[in-house]
Simulated assay, not measured.
Amino acid sequence: MRLLLVEDEPQMAEALSQALTQFDIIVDHAPTLEIARYAVSEQVHDAIVLDRQLPDGDGISLLTYLRSINLSIPVIVLTALGSVPDRVTGLDMGADDYLAKPFAVEELLARVRALLRRPSAIAPLIATLGKLEFNLDSREARVDGVALDLPRRELLVLEALIRRQGRTVLRSALEEAVYGFDDEIQSNALDSHVSRLRKKLSDAGADVEVHGIRGVGYLLRCLP
């Protein structure tokens, strides 16, 4: 899961990022509206946690921006502006939930999970290649119906590759899919994730391979 945290208070942002990361959530942090707008245009997020009082304006304006570019992303407004009129305004503007400060991190996590459990009108999208199936909604990988036990980053690598199966995915695009904006990336970290993923797919008999193109990137294809 990838979440965009729009919060300008450094200590609050750091504490929330650390707490969310412990639950296998990749957190992209945006301290301003400008950076938040850039983030949603450059990366796919499963949810947004949005502060209202930001240095360059009211966070509620991001909801208007999301509608203007036809992006439907669950948004939890997180703010000290917790009066009834403030909550009504946020919900009427398109927020999915509203949590007033101070709050418990456990409650925020529960609300994020609840948002992502809401039924969709669209059937789950399943990407298939060889004997591999990948549920793009639940992010579950299976080979011949048997679930693959993949750590978070290997799962994110596989998702990025199967979304573009048969096409080369640049290293830079894979790194963006796997790491948050603020993550420090070791030079060979991505290659290590790919190597372990490649072995697990082979051991499971998926009939697919992760093919490396030196200096360019990787592609997921059926075995010849």
Rank of each mutant, 00 (worst) to 15 (best):
C222R: 15
L4N: 01
G59C: 09
V105Y: 00
E140I: 15
I213W: 07
P85L: 04
E42Q: 00
K199D: 14
H193L: 15
A95D: 03
D46M: 03
R167Q: 11
G82M: 01
A39W: 00
H211K: 14
F181D: 04
I122V: 15
I60P: 05
E140W: 14
A127T: 03
L33M: 04
Y38K: 00
G57P: 02
Y218L: 04
L132W: 00
S120I: 13
A141H: 08
T21E: 12
Y38D: 00
D46P: 04
R142W: 07
G212V: 03
G90D: 05
D137P: 02
D96R: 03
G90L: 11
T79Q: 03
L170V: 03
L71G: 00
L66H: 12
Q43F: 02
D144L: 13
R142H: 15
E184A: 14
K200M: 13
N70Y: 12
P224I: 06
S192I: 14
L99Q: 03
R164C: 09
V169F: 04
I48H: 05
A127Y: 08
L129S: 06
C222M: 09
D207W: 06
E106T: 06
E154N: 05
L223Q: 07
E184L: 14
G90V: 06
E7V: 08
A110Q: 14
L148W: 01
L4H: 02
S68D: 14
A95L: 05
I48T: 01
P151M: 14
L91Q: 11
L3H: 07
E140H: 13
I25N: 13
L150K: 15
L116N: 13
R111I: 06
N70G: 08
M1Y: 02
Q43A: 00
M93T: 09
L132R: 11
V49D: 02
D191M: 04
A189G: 03
I213N: 10
P151D: 15
L108F: 04
F181T: 07
L116S: 11
D203E: 08
P151E: 15
H193S: 04
K200T: 12
L71Y: 01
R152C: 13
L201G: 12
D183E: 12
P224Q: 12
L116M: 15
E106I: 03
E107K: 01
P124R: 13
I26V: 15
L5G: 03
M1G: 09
A95S: 06
Q22S: 07
R167K: 10
